[in-house]
Simulated scan of single mutants.
Amino acid sequence: MLKYAASLSEDDVRYVEAAFTAHEVEAMTTAETTEGAHELIQAWHASGRPLAIVSNNSAAAISTYLDFHGIRPLVDVVSTRESADVGLLKPRPYLTRALA
């Protein structure tokens, strides 16, 4: 859908991306957490190794999730979708910048 909106106009792709972000943030409040995920995050942090989250979701959705569950202090790097630039979405390796 985002690629289609980008083919129409820059305004359309920005509008659709903003709508996606709003829906992602809203969905976060009802999404089920993967069993054991928070325990893994806590154990990883306790080991002293840095932890990065890499996601094709919006920064707002990831930030909301981390804050909602009180685990933001356990995460060192968050690399997310930051714009409506469809050229940066999967399968592009853009988000691998978190490895640096």
Rank of each mutant, 00 (worst) to 15 (best):
M1E: 09
K3T: 03
K3D: 05
Y4C: 09
A5L: 03
A5D: 04
A6T: 04
S7Q: 09
L8Q: 06
L8G: 00
S9Q: 08
E10S: 14
D12N: 09
R14V: 03
R14Y: 04
Y15P: 00
E17R: 14
E17F: 15
A18R: 13
F20G: 03
F20C: 14
F20H: 10
T21I: 08
A22W: 00
A22D: 12
A22G: 11
H23W: 10
H23N: 11
H23S: 12
E24D: 03
V25D: 02
E26S: 13
A27C: 08
A27M: 13
T30Y: 06
E32P: 08
T34F: 15
E35D: 13
G36Q: 06
A37R: 01
H38K: 12
E39W: 05
L40I: 14
I41G: 00
Q42Y: 12
Q42N: 12
A43K: 14
W44G: 06
W44V: 09
W44Q: 14
W44M: 13
W44N: 02
W44A: 15
H45T: 04
P50I: 00
P50W: 04
L51Q: 03
I53M: 02
I53P: 01
V54S: 02
S58I: 11
A59R: 11
A60P: 06
A60L: 10
A61M: 15
A61L: 10
A61K: 10
S63T: 14
S63F: 02
T64G: 02
T64K: 09
D67L: 07
G70D: 06
I71L: 03
I71C: 07
P73N: 05
P73R: 01
P73K: 04
P73F: 07
P73G: 04
P73L: 06
P73C: 07
P73Y: 08
V75W: 05
D76A: 08
V77E: 05
V78W: 00
V78M: 10
S79H: 07
T80N: 09
E82R: 11
V86N: 07
L89H: 00
L89N: 00
K90R: 12
P91D: 02
R92T: 01
R92F: 00
P93T: 02
P93S: 09
Y94Q: 10
L95G: 00
T96V: 04
T96A: 08
R97W: 02
A98Q: 04
